Amino acid sequence: MSKKPIIVFEGIEGTGKSHHIKNVANYFIKKKIKFIQIREPGGSINSEKIRNLILNNKSTFNKETDLLLYLSARSENIEIIRKNLGKKIILIDRFIDSTIAYQHYGMGVNLKFIQNINNYILKNIKIDFTFLNTVNLTNMKKRLRLRKKLNRYDKFNSKFYEKVQNGFIKILKKKSQKIY
């Protein structure tokens, strides 16, 4: 493992991912540790354009288009990641696990399809640490009500978020089985 790892924060809406990343980033700033911070979708100029399209409340993409837009945003960020790999710590707000949890477990897109495109885009990029934040649905809804503006992904029904969070937990369990 690199001394400059890739650290990902995952979880459904309202779990505190952005809060935790902000705290880690503030710590790195205080300690003068070199890092970059990106989010998905978003992070680069083109990826932010795709983010605005995906999260727009007027967007009504089918599940495959939605997936391909997320993966397009990731593709736009890969050069930033490659450029900083091994040189700076890389903090990412959502990444591969979010795509699988939301698009496969939540929306029913074929898992192999998602994995094949991810593998093609990422090539040799490996995540060093993933932090999964969870929340009960009551607290998630309370936190979402505090937001000034809700996007399309903040407005799904409770059953969807339950499927997605359970998907994250399944992903975590599969990863835990691979650790020796």
Rank of each mutant, 00 (worst) to 15 (best):
L91F: 09
N116D: 15
N57S: 07
N26E: 15
K49C: 09
I6W: 00
I6S: 02
L137S: 12
S18C: 11
T134V: 13
N62K: 05
S72P: 13
I169Q: 04
L150A: 09
D93Y: 03
Y180Q: 14
S176N: 14
V109D: 05
M140G: 12
L172V: 09
K17G: 05
V109P: 01
L71N: 01
R147T: 13
L172T: 09
L67Y: 06
D128E: 12
I81L: 05
N23P: 01
L111M: 08
Y161A: 04
I92D: 00
T130K: 02
T138P: 01
N151H: 12
S2T: 15
Q177H: 12
F95G: 05
S59Y: 04
L111W: 04
N26C: 13
E162P: 02
E79T: 07
A101I: 07
E76G: 04
A73V: 14
K22V: 09
I125W: 00
Y70N: 10
N46I: 09
L55N: 10
K63D: 08
R152M: 08
L122W: 07
F28M: 07
L55S: 05
I96H: 05
H104F: 13
S2E: 10
N139K: 15
R143K: 11
K149I: 15
S2W: 08
Y102S: 02
R51G: 10
K4G: 00
G86M: 06
K112N: 14
S98V: 15
F28L: 09
E40S: 05
Q165Y: 14
N151F: 13
L53C: 09
G86I: 04
G167R: 01
E76R: 03
K173P: 08
I89P: 00
I12S: 06
L91M: 08
R152G: 01
K32Q: 13
T134R: 03
I80Q: 10
N77A: 06
K34T: 02
N26F: 08
Y161S: 09
I81H: 06
N84P: 04
I81K: 02
K34I: 00
D154I: 04
I54M: 03
S72M: 10
L69A: 07
Q115H: 07
K88V: 09
S18T: 15
Q37Y: 06
I45A: 12
G108Y: 05
I80V: 14
F61T: 07
D93G: 08
T60G: 12
K31F: 05
K123I: 14
